[in-house]
C-alpha cells in the first residue's frame, strides 16, 4: 500500500506517518524503516536531521539516509518493511539541484545549470521503489499557493532565472502522480487533516 501526506512545513504529516507506520508494523509484525532524504546544507538542517533520526530510532525504526537515487536502497533494506520517505520535497531538491562536476550545488549561482530531468527521474524511481516493497508512506510539502515568480505572457518559464518555479512545477508533478496512485491521500493543515481518498 502507498500513503501520501502533504501539507505545510511541520503541519503534522510526520506524526501521522509515524502513527500509521507503527500501527501497521504492530499489526502485521513487519519491520519499520525511516528514510531521511535531507541533505543538510547548514548547521540548522543538520541538527534537525539528527533530531529526527534519533526520534525515529527510539521508536523502533531502522534509519536509512538517501539523498538521491532512492532505488539504490533496495539492495540493502528489508523490502517487507513499512517505509517512511521523509521527504519527497528534499529528494527532488537534491536530484534537481545536486552537486555539479565541480562539487558546487546546481543553480546556486543563478545560472541555468540545474537538472531539468530530475522530476521524471524521481517519479520513475519512486514508482520502482514502491513496486518492490510492501508499504511506503510519502511525506511531501505544499508550496503552490504563493505568488511565485511570474512567467512571461505566454506562460513560459525562463530556464536561466526560474529555478524555483521549475522546482515547484516538478514537485507538483511528483505529488500529483503519487496522489493518483496512492491508496490513501491526506492533506495536513496545522495538525488537522483532510482525507482526499
Amino acid at each position: 500500500m502507498e500513503f501520501l501526506y502533504v501539507g505545510g512545513n511541520n503541519n503534522g504529516m510526520r506524526e501521522r506517518a509515524e502513527e500509521v507506520a507503527k500501527l501497521s508494523g504492530d499489526v502485521f509484525e513487519v519491520p519499520l524503516c525511516y528514510i531521511s532524504t535531507l541533505s543538510p546544507q547548514d548547521y540548522e538542517e543538520s541538527t534537525t536531521q539528527n533530531m529526527r533520526e534519533k526520534h525515529y530510532a527510539s521508536r523502533g525504526f531502522k534509519i536509512e539516509k538517501c539523498d538521491s537515487n532512492i532505488c539504490s536502497l533496495l539492495d540493502r533494506v528489508d523490502t517487507r518493511s513499512i517505509f517512511i520517505i521523509d521527504s519527497i520535497t528534499s529528494l527532488l531538491r537534491n536530484e534537481m539541484f545536486g552537486t555539479d562536476e565541480a562539487g558546487g550545488r546546481y543553480g546556486e549561482s543563478g545560472g541555468d545549470s540545474f537538472d531539468v530531468l530530475a522530476t521524471g527521474r524521481v517519479i520513475e524511481d519512486l514508482q520502482t521503489f514502491a513496486q518492490n516493497v510492501r508499504s511506503t508512506l510519502y511525506i511531501g510539502h505544499y508550496i503552490f499557493s504563493g505568488t511565485g515568480r511570474r512567467m512571461d505572457n505566454s506562460g513560459v518559464l525562463d530556464r536561466s532565472r526560474d529555478h524555483v518555479e521549475y522546482f515547484r512545477k516538478g514537485l507538483a508533478l511528483v505529488e500529483r502522480g503519487l496522489a493518483s496512485r496512492c491508496d490513501r491521500v491526506e492533506e495536513f493543515s496545522y495538525g488537522m487533516r483532510y482525507r482526499f481518498k
Binding site: 505544499y142 503552490f144 499557493s145 512545477k169 507538483a172
Partner: peptide, 8 residues
C-alpha cells in the same frame, strides 16, 4: 481554484 500546477 487551487495552487499552481495542481491540475485545475
Amino acid at each position: 481554484f487551487g495552487g499552481a500546477y495542481q491540475g485545475k
